[in-house]
Design a protein around this nucleic acid. Sequence first.
DNA 1: GCGTCCAGGTCTACC
DNA 2: GGTAGACCTGGACGC
Length: 321
Amino acid sequence: MILCDRRRFQIDGLDEPAIPRRSKQMKLSIPAPPDFNFKRTILSHGWCQLLPCRFDKERWTLRRVFDVGASRPIAATIRAAGKRIEIEVARKTLGKRASEKIVRDVRHMFRLDDDMSDFYQAVAEDPHFAWIVRAGAGRMLRSPTVFEDLVKTICTTNCSWALTEKMVAGLTNNLGLPSADGHYSFPSPEEMAKAPPSFYRDEMRAGYRAPYFKELADRVASGELDVESWIHSDLATSELTKEIKGVKGVGDYAAENLLKLIGRYDGLALDSWLRSKFARTHNKGRACSDKKITRHYARFGKWRGLALWCDMTKDWIEEQG
DNA sequence: GCGTCCAGGTCTACC
DNA sequence: GGTAGACCTGGACGC
């Protein structure tokens, strides 16, 4: 992807009109870990800007349409509320099953159950990385499903961020299901499998990736490929990487990026922006080899990919105090 | 407005 | 295993 575009969200902030508040909305509340940083997690990378998420930087909220199973998708607004995360649902009432599903999804997205202590221990002694512990950085926002993260990752390959947004929007707005307020959920593998190949080429504007999406959706919908199992896989990272790269359109960068979202940080997921940012930050603006970048973060072992990402995105948010 | 060039990551064929 | 070219889109640029 083209990097100058990738960081656009830091400057523009809100680009969607606020949804009018309803007279009665239901609220759910989740306790957050002591080391959790809501802002750092939302802006951990560009996912907050991809539908069905909508980031409001003025209010520091994340809106998203959640798929809750059989009933209609539900839009919710997520915000920090002290040491808790508050979820405001655009419904007067919400069934137990739907409430539990939304809470489970939010916990997963914000990685509230991730134990960061090992990572923080790995970076705490390094003067250039100790800020990560103080800031509570390192939780990378993800989607409720591995499938959604995989599709979005493929959408980031070999194109500008603007095109990534366009492809994801085309997919969501055409194949997703509408919530009561007219926004759409991310389509399921089954919904994507129903779409003809021409949809991916002509409507989604996925270009040469079009057959890849069709094939992926078919394989997942038919049960041939269980991408959700990757998150709890016992396979060694090298083996899991091979399996992930078995998906058409997924190469080294895409596989390692997905592995980060799954919670494995061995890979660096180097793309053009990371290489450029590393050169500016650590190599006096001169391009350097991937080997040199790898050596720079090698001391962090299995956390090197996360250490790299935190290092390269440190300036995305001004630290307070 | 039109045409050309280029960047971006992966796939495939070839050596 | 390594490499070159094709894939497709949108932005930048020149005319």
